[in-house]
Design a protein around this nucleic acid. Sequence first.
DNA 1: CCTACCGATCGGTAGG
DNA 2: CCTACCGATCGGTAGG
Lengths: 214, 214
Amino acid sequence: MTDSPPPKGRQPGRPRHVTPSADYLKRHEEIVEAAAKVFQEKGYGSGSLDDVAAALDLRKASLYYYVHSKAELLYLIFERAIDGAIEDLEQLAISGSPAERLAGLLRHQVRTVASNPSLFAVFFDQRPHLEDDQEARIRDKERRYLGLFVDAVDAAIGSGSIAVENSHYAAQLLLGMANWSYKWVDPDHDDVETIADAAVRLVLGSSKTGGDVR
Amino acid sequence: MTDSPPPKGRQPGRPRHVTPSADYLKRHEEIVEAAAKVFQEKGYGSGSLDDVAAALDLRKASLYYYVHSKAELLYLIFERAIDGAIEDLEQLAISGSPAERLAGLLRHQVRTVASNPSLFAVFFDQRPHLEDDQEARIRDKERRYLGLFVDAVDAAIGSGSIAVENSHYAAQLLLGMANWSYKWVDPDHDDVETIADAAVRLVLGSSKTGGDVR
DNA sequence: CCTACCGATCGGTAGG
DNA sequence: CCTACCGATCGGTAGG
């Protein structure tokens, strides 16, 4: 009740003008996080807003103080995942030799995905539940993302670091190798850096390519 | 009405004694296929039995002549996917040089998954909706499946064909590379064999390893 | 294989 | 942030 006003009119992509309180933002993020866990475990269709609210010891109706709909909640998870993944990627994509660059991108992808399985489980598996306009926004960001990988593969082919012919296929295969990690890596028992190393070794051999680009 | 008796008591793993008619089996398979498409597009939670029935121009209640529950329908999809994937795999896993064997497994995995995206989209993405005993059955088959890959990786390491250290991680990474294909391959526009070639090249280089092991 | 129907769940709203 | 509630959907059953 002593909070800042409810953020009516909040739309993805349309920035707010009244700044929400820190408490409000914190709660908002807790809700997105809880929703990611619920949608990971039960799927978007079977996971209910009651589940999300219960995880935070709230009532369902209270969620509507923070989000407009279940659909928006899903989109917020996607935005969080892709924006987090894009971080650091742009600079990685323009540094070092072709082999180092490709190794860096692959490492980054493994780290990013394997370190936050909940978020990426939703991102990768609940995609069909996005509404059309939401899907279009995510697809745009993803297309640029894939482009960085294709460019790095092209450069690595040019320098003779890898032997593949079709760089688009190769980029998708490499992304798959890294992205799949959310299905099997347990961040508590597996060492993500060791896995990232293995991925680089598998593709670029045991040469010193892309040593420790943290 | 002129059909064979409704197959009461049908449980996964408990073989039937009265042989169902060919018509019955055909319809049964159509239902599983339609369900796979529905669950792929809408997810298990949001996809309804009404959707499945409508896809075959039936009423929902009629489905219960063929399956006991929505949950069983999901399990049948999983069984179909894993049993199909295991086919041919066992012989592939014991033929040729280490490098050829690994190339063969990788090719097989890309072919299997990319050729039937609907089925494997459900298999890989709707897993949390399996009931515990169903999940246990699938997990057992999958564990043996992974074992074949780990063995092939070990042999390839032994023969110097790949440079990785941890064969379990390497096997998961290779499976990921292949499995991910259901997310991006369009069997109508992409050539699955070319993609399989690219995967082998990426991991084993351009040497003639595992030429054409169809 | 169908019509009719039940009980439960769920997203969302009213009103405070 | 809560209580109370509505309308719609859905898995499953009865009975034929």
